[in-house]
Design a protein around this nucleic acid. Structure first.
Length: 580
DNA sequence: GCCGTTTTCGGCCCGACTGTTTTCAGTCG
């Protein structure tokens, strides 16, 4: 899978067409087909232009002649006439309406046609003034829900950081683990798949007593609103503004339901299609063999693993379930052996009180040792980073002396000398060669000049990657999830420069960063770029952020051998220095 | 719009829940 400019733009165009056609009331299967095509381009292996030219695009399942023509038109003219035509039939903002929970394409069409409402602002006005209630199919309750939904959209844009979502559901998980009727439970949905942000949390419990389980859930979750409450599902909104769903099933149903509610939707559709072809039907309650006469016989599966086996597949870890080639790989027994938490031996990219960290080098080192790491790379900010108390050369010498002394004194953990050096405007880094060559590891990151254009940012990063003293490119995109887009950069070019020079790429586990993005991390692996999984910890407690980086790495199909800090300290340094 | 071991037309994954219904549409996952 590789994201290229063409593929991303095509995916966006087809997705928009799908949504607009849906609102226009087009054949739902046609709408689905556009969604499919969008998904295909967002996960396509290779650039659309090259695949079209070589004739391979027509072999991609789900891409038909109509799509081929549209892709050809896009590549030749930069636009798709059918797309513009659909756009001309609806106002541009109308897609915003679909962000409101419980508000889908049918309702969007109704409010637009009957009231001329086509933006969130207009929808809010219409709901507040009671106009919505007059429409057929809309009542007071719908109106209230829409107003509440708009508030939610405005407050958080409806997305939450993976780590925040896990934190929000902690009390619920504790309650379920001590509830005597709960046989087993699991976080499902996009959280289980380690998506970088999530819309809500899905929790699945096998229980012998749904009523008391949902009561206990409601008690622990402290909802500000109960959206729905049935025998199998309770939906709430927490005070944090995030929706949490609890699904309750029997012990027998648990494996099927776990697979179903883990998703992704695309993975499930592909799996159901596969099962159908093999003469099965699958849903959240079971797997059924279907006879010619249409008789359904349940097939017993004690685990998700059983379920995959029955369908002729190796076990697919949740992180991979994005319908991005994992089913085919499972069929041919070529799924990767994903890197695990316990594979990470070095705590890399750690700050101390020398720059903007909260804890001393010794405290960080001891905490790392206690957490099971055998070495730690102290990498404070470099001299240009005034904002973070970056280190001048004489401060560096003091730090190195302290590290040498600590290494003589501390058992069970080795402290390496590193730096997170700023990449300057021209792509150079922040110290002389004489200083750079004395570090065990140099991480180079952009911390300023976010407003340069794509060509400039790409040039800065490529130059940094080609610098013989730079070992790792830090948080490549500079994004802060839900807060700030990354600066514009051509990932592909930077990754190719890294592949060329043996420079590694960081997967930064800070919950706001998760940068490199998993989609690009997968591309990095394809290009042979090695990675380093880091916490970017600024205090002892956040050393554990490296486990979020492990999640990203797993989602990117990375194996232990792709991760440099899965090696011991000497192996890590050797790999950085000689590219082995 | 896509697809095909029932193959060029007819079907396309499946079920729970809400709200507004008096038999069901819309939304969600």
């Amino acid at each position: 899978m590789s994201s290229t400019q063409h593929n991303e733009e095509l995916a966006a165009i087809f997705e928009e067409m799908a949504a607009l056609l849906d609102i226009l009331g087009e054949n739902p299967f046609k709408v689905r087909s556009y969604h499919n095509v969008s998904h295909i381009f967002s996960t396509l292996d290779g650039d659309a232009a090259e695949l079209l030219a070589s004739g391979q695009l027509e072999n991609v399942k789900g891409v038909g002649s109509s799509t081929i023509e549209k892709v050809r038109e896009y590549l030749e003219t930069g636009r798709i006439a059918a797309h513009l035509e659909i756009r001309s039939r609806l106002p541009a903002d109308i897609l915003d309406l679909l962000q409101v929970p419980g508000f889908g394409p049918r309702k969007a069409r109704a409010v637009y046609q009957k009231l001329g409402v086509s933006s969130l602002h207009q929808l809010e006005e219409a709901a507040a003034s009671g106009k919505l209630e007059e429409l057929e199919g809309f009542g007071r309750k719908t109106e209230e829900n829409i107003l509440a939904g708009i508030e939610l959209v405005k407050k958080h844009k409806g997305r939450f950081l993976w780590a925040d979502a896990m934190h929000v559901i902690e009390p619920v998980l504790n309650a379920l683990s001590s509830h005597k009727s709960v046989i087993t439970f699991e976080v499902a949905g996009s959280l289980r798949r380690y998506m970088e942000t999530v819309k809500d949390a899905d929790i699945l419990a096998a229980t012998s007593d749904p009523a008391s389980t949902s009561a206990s859930f409601l008690d622990a979750a402290a909802p500000v609103k109960i959206t729905s409450r049935g025998d199998t599902k309770v939906s709430i909104v927490t005070s944090y503004g995030m929706a949490v769903d609890l699904r309750m099933v029997s012990k027998k149903e648990f494996p099927y339901a776990l697979h179903h509610f883990t998703g992704s939707k695309e993975h499930n559709i592909a799996m159901r299609g596969r099962s159908q072809k093999m003469g099965f039907k699958m849903n959240e309650y079971g797997l059924f063999r279907v006879s010619r006469a249409g008789r359904e016989t349940p097939v017993k599966c004690a685990s998700e693993n059983d379920l995959f086996q029955t369908l002729g597949l190796d076990y697919i870890p949740p992180e991979l379930r994005e319908d991005a080639g994992e089913i085919e790989a499972a069929e041919h027994h070529v799924l990767p052996h994903l890197v695990r938490r316990e594979d990470v031996r070095g705590a890399i990219h750690v700050h101390s009180t020398y720059s903007d960290g909260h804890d001393s080098i010794e405290d960080m080192a001891v905490a790392a040792r206690d957490a099971g790491f055998s070495y730690i790379l102290i990498s404070d900010h470099s001299q240009s980073a005034y904002y973070a108390g970056g280190l001048k050369p004489d401060e560096l010498k003091k730090q190195w002396k302290e590290i040498d002394a600590l290494n003589r004194r501390l058992d069970g953990v080795r402290i390496l000398k590193g730096i997170e050096t700023d990449i300057l405007a021209d792509g150079s880094v922040d110290y002389s060669d004489g200083i750079l060559e004395r570090f065990d590891c140099v991480i180079a990151s952009i911390h300023s000049g976010f407003t340069h254009d794509e060509a400039t940012q790409t040039m800065r990063l490529v130059r940094a990657a080609r610098n013989r003293h730079v070992d790792v490119i830090g948080h490549l995109s500079g994004r802060l999830l839900l807060q700030r887009e990354g600066y514009p950069v051509n990932h592909e070019e930077v990754l190719k420069a890294c592949a060329d020079t043996g420079t590694a790429v960081e997967i930064n586990g800070n919950p706001h960063r998760l940068d490199l993005d998993w989609r690009w991390a997968r591309r990095a692996r394809e290009l042979g770029v090695r990675t380093v999984l880091t916490s970017d910890a600024h205090r002892k407690e956040t050393l554990s952020h490296v486990f979020a980086a492990v999640g990203v790495a797993r989602k990117a199909w990375l194996e232990k051998k792709d991760v440099l800090n899965s090696r011991g300290a000497d192996g890590f340094i050797a790999a950085l220095k000689n590219g082995s």
